[in-house]
Design a protein around this nucleic acid. Sequence first.
DNA 1: ATCTTACATTGACGACCATCGATGTGACGG
DNA 2: CCGTCACATCGATGGTCGTCAATGTAAGAT
Lengths: 109, 109
Amino acid sequence: MVVEAPAECCSLAATPIGAADAECLAKRLKALSDPTRLRVLSHVAAQGCEAVCACDLIEVLDISQPTVSHHLKKLVEAGLLTREQRGRWAHYTVVREAFTELHQFLDLR
Amino acid sequence: MVVEAPAECCSLAATPIGAADAECLAKRLKALSDPTRLRVLSHVAAQGCEAVCACDLIEVLDISQPTVSHHLKKLVEAGLLTREQRGRWAHYTVVREAFTELHQFLDLR
DNA sequence: ATCTTACATTGACGACCATCGATGTGACGG
DNA sequence: CCGTCACATCGATGGTCGTCAATGTAAGAT
């Protein structure tokens, strides 16, 4: 599942958004609306340009491995993270453009 | 239900956020993660400083009145809108500070 | 006082979601 | 080839959510 960008990189303050754009933005925001996912994302983002492997997250967040895997998948599907396989490890990096779009949308004028 | 501000107005890119801040931010973002609610919010925001009454939203969005009322309540509870009663009408306005906080949080450096 | 209008609340229903244990998979080491 | 490690997937469970019809409520109009 891939989330396409809204028709125009709209702002909340501009003319009311259409149903299609709302649907697409809601998917991105839904991926952000879980506390565990925010913490996962925060750990990856705090690493800057360095990719983070999943095993680190299991230790730090103290939740089960399937749950971490589940959340990482959701974040990748929402286009907020990218996944890169290196041997047996999976490394994750933040997609900056996705946040730029959200950032613009949340900007009231 | 009121959403308190996170301990420090943190950014995703700073040091990993704690569980409490994540919980609080997730509540705000959850209120934004529904397409109907985004459209409601967008209609109010597009009105600028003018307050918007609920009856307008029912017409424009073509959803039932209880559903509009439900979403408006969620948005107020999340601190994203304020409600003001004027006679029989309820008027809603955007809380700009709430969006400023989210805006800062989504800013990667 | 009665009726209407604008909106909130309730209750119910179906859909979705976060979590975890169990299990599968593919890469690497010996 | 076999065991281990890192991770994905599956299935089940308990909880949450969006939606609407029905009903309640409070303010203004007649």
